[in-house]
Design a protein around this nucleic acid. Structure first.
Length: 574
DNA sequence: GCCGTTTTCGGCCCGACTGTTTTCAGTCG
């Protein structure tokens, strides 16, 4: 179930967007955005909380606090409704086009009557955008490119959004008396980075009440099809959900069939045929006699096919079928095996939570070690200084006594500048337990420049981990242009780990890149890059990427015991 | 709209980049 905080965050961001379109004052929307992020990252669920409790959230004052209260008690906000009436929803939608902000969106709306992305595309085709004041041919072309980039995401949503929707529906469906089991399948279960539609499975013999409960859920916007075994709807977010109701005894076969992927299913069905068997969503059968051989659990079906059980995240027909037949599947790393997080931020820089709050949650997660890695000074907006980070180190040293079972590591996230240099020099860096180095700007360098830049950082003996290597933001910013072959070779050669950034907007490295890097003997760190307490739970998505990249606990440095990790970090330093 | 041992008013992370401009607005991180 998504937290009330997430709904409040979305509400405040919409309010901020509309303010920024309608009014000149830039500070008011910024205040709402700041409050939105603070609520989203706040570790206490605001559901049912009174005003004094709400006002404890940083950046939330009386005005915003009262709006949150109204929203939580009534489910809406009158002032937001008023703004919505003044600005068509499509105009706000224009702002999600890269390079298009509130001011240009408003001009397009006022001057050309553009109220949707489709209308904007039409206006561009008629060359009407370039003629607007302070626009021009290049701006028009940039907007057109932004639209193409956005549409390339193809209506897919990011994995965290899909997971939230799936969990909401499963809570309802799983509680029905007619349902004996309920789960999500499809690409969501395979942990793909974006999800086109969500597949839900319910086991039970009485389908109609289940279908009825499904289509009457409040977030269903449209029913596409409704039958006894399959029903499809579109939610108010525009996400398609397919629900299948299947007999309990066919659960395993159905989960295999609907988890996919399609190529994986084709491979195992072909295998079945060659053995005189037939595999469908109802079970594994003897082709001649029609006798049911296995169906109730996924394990039983794979076993009867003479294969190892294949983890859902591996079912992409990337060699997993052959490996499972040979008994050579990797034992992929799991969330439980992670012993620590090596990239996190606090409110000393751009994080939302204090050092103490972040560490407390890390202890709850049962970590053996935990690294704080706030931004170094070259990201100017963070205003880091040597004094501030040394003061943080003293605080961490004191905090160590409170957590005897967890080792606190003091690190920093360095900025890789356009030449591949990082903040601070060797002697100062040597005193950190670890460093993460990442690209944060100058994304448009040429492939050669960018490759040389990143490799220089990799070869820096004080750099332990490269953070979010390609800097992509899914559906928003493309990856930088890099010779990955050369980068992974350098990382393998120098023993510099590469991060799998677990944030659902990044998931950087992607699964394909993990598979590629692995061939060069690269080690990985599955990090959250958390800027708030709830972000620490994003590790599930990073682990999904690691599994999709066939990684075992031996490949992931933060699945190692502390001593082994420390030996790895110390290696290569002068 | 929020916030405060530089402030209860006057600031608001600061700078780069792009494209449109003869001095700057918009967008982004």
């Amino acid at each position: 179930m998504p937290r009330a905080n997430d709904a409040v965050e979305a509400m405040l961001i919409e309010y901020a967007d509309l303010l920024s379109i309608l009014f000149e004052d830039p500070y008011k929307p910024r205040a709402y955005e700041k409050a939105a992020r603070a609520v989203g990252g706040y570790s206490v669920d605001l559901e049912g909380k009174d005003l004094p409790e709400i006002l404890k959230v940083p950046a939330v004052g009386r005005s915003i606090g009262e709006k949150i209260q109204e929203f939580l008690t009534t489910g809406e906000l009158a002032e937001l409704e008023e703004l919505r009436e003044r600005i068509p929803p499509g105009v706000r939608g224009l702002m999600s086009i890269p390079g298009l902000g509130p001011k240009k969106a408003m001009v397009l709306h006022q001057e050309l009557g553009v109220g949707s992305v489709d209308e904007l595309v039409a206006a561009i085709e008629q060359d009407r955008v370039a003629a607007l004041p302070r626009f021009g041919a290049k701006t028009q072309e940039n907007i057109a490119r932004g639209i193409r980039q956005m549409q390339a995401a193809g209506g897919r949503v990011k994995i965290d959004v899909a997971l939230g929707v799936a969990e909401t529906f499963l809570e309802l469906l799983g509680s029905l008396p007619e349902a004996t089991r309920a789960a999500y399948a499809g690409s969501l279960r395979r942990m793909k980075e974006t999800i086109g539609d969500v597949d839900l499975l319910v086991a039970g013999s009485d389908a109609p009440p289940v279908m009825e409960a499904f289509v009457t859920h409040p977030s269903v916007a449209r029913v596409l099809a409704k039958g006894d075994t399959k029903t499809s709807v579109v939610t108010d977010l525009g996400l398609q959900l397919d629900l299948r109701v299947i007999p309990d005894e066919a659960w395993g076969a159905a989960m295999i069939y609907f988890t996919g992927s399609k190529p994986h299913n084709i491979r195992i069905r072909e295998m079945a045929v060659r053995r005189g068997l037939k595999l469908s969503e109802y079970g594994l059968f003897d082709a001649k006699s029609g006798d049911l051989l296995a169906a109730e659990s996924e394990e039983s079906v794979y076993e009867r096919l003479g294969m190892q059980f294949v983890e859902p995240t591996l079912r992409e027909d990337r060699g997993e079928v052959e490996a499972a037949l040979a008994g050579e599947l990797p034992v992929v790393v799991t969330e439980r095996q992670l012993k620590g997080d090596l990239h996190t931020h606090t409110n000393l820089t751009d994080g939302l939570a204090s050092l103490e709050e972040m560490v407390a949650r890390a202890a709850e997660l049962g970590y053996a070690y935990f690294a704080i890695t706030d931004h170094a000074p070259n990201l100017y907006m963070q205003r880091m200084t040597e004094e501030k980070i040394l003061a943080q180190r003293s605080r961490i040293e004191k905090l160590r006594r409170t957590y005897p079972k967890m080792t606190l590591l003091h690190g920093t996230e360095l900025n890789i500048d356009p030449d591949g240099e990082v903040d601070w020099d060797g002697p100062f860096l040597a005193d950190f337990d670890l460093t993460v180095a990442s690209v944060h700007s100058h994304f448009t360098q040429s492939r050669d420049e960018m490759t040389a830049r990143v490799i220089r950082a990799i070869e820096n003996p004080y750099v332990d981990i490269i953070g979010h290597l390609t800097t992509r933001q899914i559906g928003k910013r493309p990856p930088v242009d890099l010779d990955l072959e050369a980068v992974f070779e350098a990382a393998g050669r120098t023993g510099t780990a590469i991060e799998i950034n677990s944030h659902p907007d990044r998931l950087d490295l992607s699964d394909e890149h993990v598979l590629w890097a692995r061939r060069h003997g690269v080690r990985f760190a599955v990090n959250t890059d958390a800027h708030a307490v709830p972000h620490l739970d994003h590790r599930r998505f990073g682990v999904g990427m690691a599994q999709r990249g066939w990684l075992t606990k031996d490949d992931v440095i933060n699945a190692w015991p502390l001593r082994k990790l420390q030996r790895f970090l110390a290696a290569g330093r002068p």
